[in-house]
């Protein structure tokens, strides 16, 4: 084992190689690796987030669907209710209208009858007046007689009505 100047040469060479690696190799590779690490970490985080969001979306959709179903059922229920109400009110209105028409007709009939009676009364009293004036001559106080006659006729009509 003979030591010689090779030793010094190797020390210098070694130093130069270390410097070269330190200056021109290590930082670049480390930088690339760290950047990739970060990218991968970000990607994984994004994927995680995506999964989370998808889950949320699924849940939200389910919720919305459920709510929509409930709303629809409620609407249908309301519509049924309303339809029933409308039919009911239409029936009630029709009944009312019918009875009103009947009332009206009854009133008309009563009026007609009254008018007919008045007419009859008038005609009877006229006939009676004519008959009486013919019977007693002309010296009859028409006005006086008329009142008596009217009274008579009223009695008559009352008798007839009863």
């Amino acid at each position: 084992m003979n030591l010689n100047a090779t030793l010094l040469g190797e020390m210098i060479t070694f130093g130069i190689f270390i410097w070269f690696t330190l200056r021109y190799v290590w930082p670049f590779i480390m930088k690339a690796m760290q950047e990739r690490e970060k990218t991968i970490a970000n990607g994984l985080a994004a994927a995680e987030k995506g999964v989370q969001e998808l889950e949320d979306a699924h849940r939200k959709t389910a919720e919305m669907l459920h709510k929509a179903r409930l709303d629809a059922a409620e609407l249908i229920e309301k519509a049924h209710q309303r339809a029933a109400d409308m039919i009911e009110s239409a029936k009630a209105q029709a009944r009312e209208e019918g009875s009103r028409l009947i009332e009206l007709a009854k009133g008309d009939i009563a009026q007609e009858r009254e008018a007919a009676r008045h007419e009859l009364q008038r005609q009877v009293s006229q006939i009676a007046m004519t008959a009486v004036s013919k019977f007693l001559g002309t010296g009859v106080d028409v006005r006086q007689q008329q009142a008596a006659l009217d009274k008579f006729v009223t009695t008559l009509s009352m008798k007839e009505a009863s």
Binding site: T13, F17, F20, T21, Y24, V25, W26, P27, F28, I29, K31, A32, M33, E35, R36, T39
Partner: peptide, 20 residues
């Protein structure tokens, strides 16, 4: 040693943070 330096230097120069 120089082979080591050159090879590693080449790789370091072209190192991408993408797919290696």
């Amino acid at each position: 040693g120089i082979s080591f330096c050159l090879i590693f230097r080449c790789v370091a120069k072209r190192a991408t943070s993408g797919v290696p």
